[in-house]
Design a protein around this nucleic acid. Structure first.
Lengths: 226, 226
DNA sequence: GAGAAAAAGGGGATTTTTCCTGTATGACAC
DNA sequence: GTGTCATACAGGAAAAATCCCCTTTTTCTC
């Protein structure tokens, strides 16, 4: 339970200034009792790191996911290590299971779509202030579905399979370029057949069936920068 | 300055309620002289169509691009036909040449990034109200580069935004998936040879030599969502 | 309505990717 | 030692992608 007497300190992390400024207005205009104060804004994860060095930490961070430099997942991961006491409320345009579960597994205290009523956001803030978390029906429904699947195959898919070797990472980067596999083999001083082994291994791990899908997966999951 | 004129009627089209509501606050709170009135909101292009049937048309529409059902491009295309008198101000997260030029070619009166100062947005609204358009330095710079030559060969060398046909765009989306070219041909009800022609054409336009590069280019330039 | 340009489709060869089947090697535990 | 596991590597075949050069159909202009 977070302190209720002094205003709750909030920070906003989102890469679009218009959205940040609008959100601030929505929070402060609906806040008659002065329950909240906006401590600072950051435009991505790296900016957040910087600002946490020079400023006092907020109680709650409103966190976007898709941002340049350091995205929401990476930022939450970092916060978990260095500021585990800060409550994180994700505010994202993504409404699908994958990002929601990924964030919940990292221990965020709530997950809001950007397409919600203003009142819902106020409720979320209030809930986090009072009981420490806010999970909407959508989010708790997805949680329930996933809590059951201790299914080994699914666990394998999400857990151990995502560990890549150094060579696999290097190959993955080059597979996103115009080089052919045999050129990649030359570049890495390995046999084309070894390269084919990396390809097969990554296809398995990512559950894809073509080089294009491999590249798309890599981009989507920030394994390669574009 | 007296409020002699009737306020400028504005509509907002964006698929995220939090953003729309924030934007409304930012517009109305900075509007001491009552120059603007928010007529209505729509959450995508189809919703806009519906609302234009039952309501009086606005003077300006603030238009997002990435929306479900009917996106910004399609909505602007429709508006151009049925409501050519409405000024369109695009407000998008995309800041690259391709979407900007595509919108400008359709005759929008301004293009704003979502990552701008609140003051810039007010300036844009004022400019459109007074002189009918607002092109930031970024946008007019891109216009200048593209206005010089309609010759595709010269434009290629300059790296200017290219014009794609509807079919090429559709093919490009599918080329970023796991489908083979012949499956894409089936999906689009065209001959595999025609698909091969689209491929060749896009390879030329983007100066790439493989499907992977094509997909990476498309992602980099926001031609496909990932 | 002729002519030009764009879009759609085609034949066929080469290269690359994908997917099987394997084997050789070294590290490691027991 | 022996077994096991991960890694590097191979042969070979089928599928897909790439790249030539070429014809037909549609669309638009004059």
């Amino acid at each position: 339970m977070l302190p209720t007497k002094t205003p709750l300190k909030i920070a906003i992390v989102d890469d679009h200034n218009l959205f940040r400024k609008g959100l601030i207005k929505l929070i402060s205009l609906g806040d008659k009792e002065n329950k909240y104060s906006i401590l600072f804004e950051a435009e991505n994860g790296n900016d957040l790191k910087d600002k946490l060095k020079s400023k006092s930490p907020p109680d709650i961070i409103l966190m976007d996911i898709d941002m340049p430099d350091l995205n929401g997942y990476e930022a939450v991961d970092w916060l978990r290590k260095y500021h585990p006491d800060i409550s994180i409320l994700v505010v994202s345009m993504f409404e699908t299971e994958e990002p929601i579960m990924r964030m919940l597994r990292m221990g965020v205290k709530g997950y809001l779509s950007k397409d919600i009523e203003v009142e819902d956001m106020h409720q979320a803030l209030e809930a986090i202030a009072n009981k420490g978390f806010y999970y909407s029906d959508l989010v708790s429904g997805i949680m329930a579905q996933n809590i059951q699947s201790t299914n080994p195959e699914i666990r394998l898919k999400q857990g151990s399979a995502l560990i890549l070797t150094e060579n696999e990472r290097e190959f993955l980067k080059l597979a996103c370029t115009e080089l052919t596999y045999s050129q990649i083999a030359d570049r890495m001083n390995l046999s084309p057949k070894t390269i084919d082994g990396y390809r097969e291994s990554l296809f398995q791990k990512f559950q894809v069936k073509s080089r294009v899908s491999l590249a798309m997966y890599a981009v989507k999951n920030n394994l390669v920068k574009i």
